[in-house]
Simulated scan of single mutants.
Amino acid sequence: MPGERDSFVAVQKNSDGDITAFRTSSGRTLDYAQALQEVQQGAIQGVNAFKGRDGELYIRGDADGDPSNNLDNLPLF
C-alpha cells in the first residue's frame, strides 16, 4: 500500500541486552543511529524518540498497553 510506514519487527542486541539494530517490516536492517533518524522523520510507525536523563535521544515504542510489541520483546535477528 503506497504511503504505508515501516514498523520494527525484530532487533539485534549487544551483550548488555541493549538494542543495537532493527529489522523493519519491509526487510531493511537499520543500525540504531539510522533507526533514530527515521523515527524522528516519522518514517517508522508505532515508535517515538525521547530524550533520556543523560540528554541522549532514544527510541521507544508508543505506549499502547500491549507488552508484546515493546521493542525489548521483539524477536532477535
Rank of each mutant, 00 (worst) to 15 (best):
Q12C: 12
D6I: 11
I44M: 12
D31V: 10
D16W: 02
N14P: 03
G52F: 00
E56S: 07
F22V: 11
D72L: 02
F8R: 03
T29N: 06
I59C: 10
T29W: 00
N14Q: 10
I59K: 07
G52W: 00
N73W: 01
G46D: 06
V11T: 15
M1P: 04
D64N: 14
V47F: 03
D18C: 04
F22E: 09
F8M: 01
Q37C: 15
A35F: 02
T29Q: 04
Q34P: 00
S15W: 04
N73F: 01
Y58D: 01
V9Y: 06
I19Q: 14
A10H: 11
L71S: 09
Q37N: 15
F50K: 05
Q34V: 01
L30I: 10
D66V: 05
K51V: 13
T29F: 02
K51T: 15
N70Y: 14
S7M: 08
T20F: 09
V39K: 04
D64A: 01
L36W: 03
L74E: 07
G55I: 06
G3S: 00
F8P: 01
R23P: 00
P2L: 00
V47E: 06
D18G: 03
E56C: 02
S26Q: 15
V47N: 05
T20E: 15
E38T: 15
L30T: 10
L57D: 12
V39P: 02
S68H: 14
R53W: 01
L76T: 12
Q34K: 08
G27V: 08
G42C: 09
A49S: 15
G55V: 08
Y32R: 09
A35Y: 04
G65P: 10
A63T: 04
G27E: 07
Q40F: 02
S68A: 12
R60K: 14
A21F: 01
R5Y: 03
A49E: 03
N70F: 15
F50S: 12
D66H: 11
